[in-house]
Amino acid sequence: MVQEKKRTASFLTKEFYLAIFLLAVLIFLWIFAKGFYTINNIMSILNTYSYTLIAAIGMNMIIITSNIDVSTGALVSVVCLASAAIGKLGLPFPVLLPAAMVMGIILSTINGLFITKTKIPAIVATLATTQIFQGVLPLTTEGSIYDLPATFTWLAFEAKLFGIVPASVLMCLIITVIALFFMKYSRFSKKLYAIGNNQHSARLAGINVEKTIVITYAIAGALFGVTAIIIATAGQRVTTTMGSGLEMTLIASVILGGTSTAGGSGKVIGTVIGALILCIVSPAINYLGISPNWSDAIKGAIIMISVVVGAFQQVKKKRVIQIPKEVLNNGK
């Protein structure tokens, strides 16, 4: 009986409030932003959203284990350029996609091994690999790879569902559904949360912490690879800075989605909503007639508000002892 009562209230989660906020924003835009809901604009947002969310799901897993990856932008740039190099040979998308995923796995696994073997904090380790990834790019290519064949840009220009929806949306949908399912029904996901909560206890519970973290980075790497190939194939030219700054958008999406940077909590559905909110900001500002220079500041403000609200919810109840009245009166 008692349990039933509580369950009715359990949908009032962080994710729920975030979804309400998103809905409010969408209604606001419907009323005030003329032209926001045109097909072109929506499809453009959906494409950005797709590659952002795919990588953000990977970032979410990493952050749940109480780690982080700030090298994602550089990693994606590397994979973009490498994919372009093999794409120039005229290889089709079904070959490019797995190739990009494998490259993502390799680079991200390097991050994972670096962190677990040396016990260096993830932020420091991935900061170092960021420099390495970025540093390698100018050595291999002068600025960009261009004149890429039609086989390379197939995903962006030809692969449309019903002739209109970008295929990247379908990829994102499949990955999101698998992720939702995986984070709910796999034993592995429980290990992620346990490690993020308390590494020491997780070890006592028989979890191989190091192995789990490396596998998490590998999975995230595969997702970063998918994101990279979507970004790379958007045009006939791939530069050395395709993924620059992406890591911040990803981390912001994950945090906005309710995952604590301390690790141990957070849901995929939160990231799904968080990423969408952040992907809407820039075009929304555009259609509202506000200077695009405001976009980063507004994104920042949204994140700050959500983090502060989250912090207020965290305040714990204190044990309180009744102090006798006469003592209190004497004390004044």
Binding site: Y193, N197, S201, A205
Partner: peptide
């Protein structure tokens, strides 16, 4: 040695789900 952010059910069966 419980995991604070996880549910009661997850905690009871962690490691032997």
């Amino acid at each position: 040695s419980l995991f604070e952010e996880m549910t009661v059910l997850d905690n009871i069966f962690l490691g032997h789900e």
